[in-house]
């Protein structure tokens, strides 16, 4: 399976993502933001970080970068496109996903483990996954997902919510919401479910000496589904 990780100036989880993809069997290529063509890929990843410094709205500069047209084309033709953290922000800025990611509710950067519950597993990302509550890690300042009522209706109608923040036992309640995201949304699909944007970082949880190992479950399952 071939994967590509896009590097924007200011990306800082690009290496971590590449390490994780390779660990679970992807042949990965790094793609520079000024390139215009994607290598042949089964999966394209927009990694975490602060693309172009994120001095404007997070992800907005990246959504106008040279490579992004190819990325959009790839996704629109059904290719798997995964955006983690800043990658999720870029996906909303390119309008491949609905809504926006606002500043966290308490205006603080948050770096900690959270639990997320998978809401929809009828897709390449979560099909057959062996756990439906995963412990993952978040590290962001703008992860507070928000959208209009109309957008929310569409999200619900199309079952686009990928993962919710929840308790260890899967309760989706306010007290387990780290950033104020509407409906505890931690990750979202497009209508067709080939694009996934997610605030938590599975690539930081790929061996038991790190903050946890549930990221391994995510990647292993993903590559199994692609084979």
């Amino acid at each position: 399976m071939n994967s590509s990780v896009i590097i924007f100036p200011g990306s800082n989880c690009d290496r971590d993502m590449a390490v994780a993809l390779k660990k679970f069997g992807f042949k990965n290529k790094m793609v520079w933001h000024n390139d215009t063509e994607l290598p042949k890929s089964d999966l394209v990843v927009l990694p975490g970080g602060f693309s172009y410094g994120d001095y404007l709205r997070c992800g907005s500069m990246a959504s106008k970068s040279k490579i992004i047209d190819s990325v959009i084309k790839f996704a629109k033709s059904g290719g798997l496109l995964l955006g983690i953290c800043n990658g999720f922000q870029i996906l909303t800025e390119t309008e491949l996903l609905p809504g926006v990611l606002l500043k966290n509710k308490y205006s603080k950067f948050i770096c900690k483990n959270v639990f997320v519950k998978i809401n929809n597993s009828e897709n390449k990302y979560f099909k057959n996954i062996k756990k439906n509550i995963l412990e993952l890690h978040i590290a962001h300042n703008e992860g507070n997902f928000f959208c209009s009522n109309d957008q929310m209706k569409e999200i619900n109608d199309n079952n686009q919510i990928a993962v919710h923040y929840c308790s260890q036992n899967g309760e989706i309640e306010d007290s387990f919401n780290p950033n104020g995201a509407i409906k505890n949304i931690a990750g979202l699909f497009n209508k067709e479910k080939n694009i996934l944007g997610m605030m938590p970082h599975p690539e930081r949880m790929i061996d038991n000496y790190l903050s946890g190992e549930d990221g391994s479950i995510f990647f292993q399952n993903l590559i199994n589904n692609l084979k």
Binding site: N12, D16, G48, F109, I110, C111, E203, R204, Y209, S211
Partner: peptide, 16 residues
């Protein structure tokens, strides 16, 4: 304090 610092980026932090 330290939840406001990214302490896990680079994927090699084994004691926080």
């Amino acid at each position: 304090i330290w939840e406001q610092y990214d302490h896990t980026v680079m994927g090699d932090t084994i004691q926080k």
